[in-house]
Computed example of a mutant assay.
Amino acid sequence: MPGYPRGLYFGTRVGSRNTAGRSDWERYWENSIDVPGVETELLGELARETGVYLAIGVVERDREFSRGTLYNSIVYIGPDGNVLGKHRKLVPTGSERLLWGQGDGSTLTVIDTPFGRIGGLICWENYMPLARTAMYAQGIDIFITPTADARDTWQATIQHIACEGRCFVISCNQFVTKDTYPTDLACYDDIRQDPDILCRGGSAIVGPLGEYIVEPLYNQEGILIANLDLSLVTQSRYDFDVVGHYSRPDVFQLIVNRQKQDIVRVSKMDE
């Protein structure tokens, strides 16, 4: 399953795209996954064998209407192996817009689990205050923030989300080295002169008052494990509940369109 293609241009300049870039993008598309599909079935088997709730970042193909759009998505799989939902990134950032389409409000997904309500936003979506509010309003307890932003400022972001939403934040950050890229990519020269570590990571777990439960992990692969006491979420909302007693609906209101935005709608004519 392809991940975040850091550093690749895919043959694009303002006003033109080249054949080599189109070829690499097709390869990226071919290796992306359908949701649901064969890959989510395999992930479901793993979730079922281990008895876990699995949230995983994927590059998702649009099979419903075309063979030409990809989405940056989170997929949620339950311990029974079934896909419980997904979220498509609402706004790809910068040049990502050449790779991925825009999601809609129908995938602002939060799932119920015995361990609290879990949902998330992808990378710089977490800088969108209204998107965060839409998630808080669904009673989120564990906020998932997969990202490829390894800057120190990202750590401030996830700590702010924890404090603002009074929730646990689990941030899975990309650690990637140049030797993980196929050298036969037409656009491999895009990264040939880059440092060996293309993204240093920074995965971390933050508590509902903004404190680190697990400190950021940099410059290596690893697994972060923590026991989360969900009673701390309730305790933290004693003095601040952003969509509860600390809201002012008489002054501020948010309208969220949760309808799926289909490009084609077919209606039957009356007989």
Results as ranks from 00 to 15, higher is better:
E30C: 05
T93V: 06
D112W: 07
A137N: 13
A131I: 07
S106I: 00
G94E: 07
S73E: 06
Y71R: 12
L90K: 02
A55T: 10
E64I: 14
D152K: 13
W29F: 13
C123Y: 02
C123S: 11
T133E: 13
M135T: 06
R61W: 04
Y28V: 11
E45Q: 13
W25L: 12
G81Y: 07
H87D: 00
D34Y: 01
R67T: 06
V35F: 01
Y71Q: 08
N31M: 00
I118V: 15
T145Y: 08
N31Y: 00
L121N: 06
I142N: 08
T147S: 15
T40A: 05
E39A: 04
L99P: 05
S66P: 04
T109P: 01
L130C: 01
R63C: 05
W29Y: 14
E125K: 02
A137G: 10
G81L: 03
D112K: 15
V52F: 09
I56N: 00
K89Y: 00
Y71V: 14
R88E: 09
W25T: 08
V52P: 08
I140S: 04
V110I: 15
T40L: 09
W124G: 13
I56Q: 06
L43K: 09
R151K: 15
V59M: 03
S32H: 02
R88I: 01
R97A: 01
A148L: 13
N82E: 13
I144L: 15
A150L: 07
V83F: 08
L43G: 10
F143C: 11
P146V: 03
I140W: 01
G105S: 06
R132L: 14
D80K: 13
D152F: 03
I142P: 09
I144R: 09
T40D: 09
E30L: 05
P146H: 01
D149I: 10
V75F: 00
G119R: 07
E60S: 07
C123Q: 10
A134F: 10
L46K: 14
F115V: 00
E45F: 10
G139S: 03
A150R: 11
V110T: 15
T40W: 08
G103K: 10
C123R: 11
S32P: 09
I122L: 11
G57R: 15
W124F: 14
E125F: 07
G105H: 11
R97V: 00
K89N: 07
E45A: 15
D141A: 12
R97S: 02
R132H: 06
F65K: 10
E39W: 00
E41G: 12
P36C: 07
V59R: 01
L90P: 00
T145G: 15
M128H: 12
G51V: 02
